[in-house]
Design a protein around this nucleic acid. Structure first.
Ligand SMILES: [Zn+2]
Ligand SMILES: [Zn+2]
Ligand SMILES: [Zn+2]
Ligand SMILES: [Zn+2]
Lengths: 149, 149
DNA sequence: TCCTGAACCTCTAGTCCTTGGAGATTTAGG
DNA sequence: CCTAAATCTCCAAGGACTAGAGGTTCAGGA
């Protein structure tokens, strides 16, 4: 029998977060003492470790919800779990791709500036005008510039 | 003179977002018509483009706030702008590093599973036990496991 | 000049995933 | 039995938007 504090320390998940997981249904409602305090057993710890590990690996709460229900039916085929993981991998790769573009662009921006007056700063100049960018990072957009005044 | 809708289309920033930027002080309060509608001029568009471009490049709103005030004083030295950009670059690199670890780990997890029953799924098994991981991705944590029951 | 429908206004609340605090109660140890 | 630590519930914030409800204003055409 564990208090929420012990569970928190053991799993490395903050106490309010555990209560939050219970609220959104990721963690089951545990037994309570007569004084209404939560008491956890080993199975709760395992589940919480699973959740935290999956979160650390970038899975969304919704994905984890699905993974947990798959875990609960060991005889079902695991295609779904594999697909969820593959989707997450694809997400991670997409994020890396985007961040690499940013990295390249920021390297360029930073290296271009010799460090003079703000009025001639290439950092500021490039931020003011995407045309000075060397890559098509992020959500590009071409306005038609029919703007007077 | 532009309406907020025209500004929105031209800059590629949603109307509520423009109002939000005004609320948090990133965009100045524009002139209003007699009927209380916002009317923007060219300077507003330039500023909004700057903001959106910086956001696309990963700068935080706070960083942009600083960059904008630097832009307003062209005679000041630009060290601060350069440092803000360098910090952002460091942030982006840190994110990439973390995501690459996740990518490696997810590749491993996904490749390990032959696709059988959920009870033997390596995706689920690895999520349940970080010891099966090949890298030290994310926020590792070693519990002392003095847990009974 | 009037009408209409699109665009605008303010205000509130929701998103996602936690995290922190206030004030009241329970627990465990001495 | 007393006290200090931990727990309880409820509410709010964080970052950066986004979406609606309900009401008003604008611009183009008949
Ligand atoms: Zn500079
Ligand atoms: Zn750019
Ligand atoms: Zn599998
Ligand atoms: Zn792991």
């Amino acid at each position: 029998m564990m208090t929420i504090g012990k569970l928190s320390d053991t799993a490395g998940v903050k106490v309010p977060t555990i209560r939050y997981y219970e609220e959104i249904g990721l963690m089951p409602e545990p037994e309570r003492t007569e004084g209404n305090q939560r008491r956890y057993v080993r199975a709760h710890l395992d589940r919480l470790n699973f959740i935290r590990h999956a979160r650390d690996l970038g899975f969304s709460v919704e994905a984890i919800r699905d993974l947990l229900s798959l875990q609960a039916t060991p005889d079902a085929p695991c295609h779904d779990a594999d697909r969820i993981a593959a989707d997450n991998l694809a997400d991670v790769r997409a994020k890396i791709a985007r961040l690499k573009k940013l990295e390249a662009e920021l390297e360029h921006i930073v290296s271009e500036c010799a460090g003079g007056r703000a009025g001639e700063c290439n950092v500021l100049a490039t931020l003011a005008d995407h045309a000075l960018c060397v890559t098509n990072h992020g959500h590009a957009h071409n306005p038609l510039d029919n703007v007077s005044n």
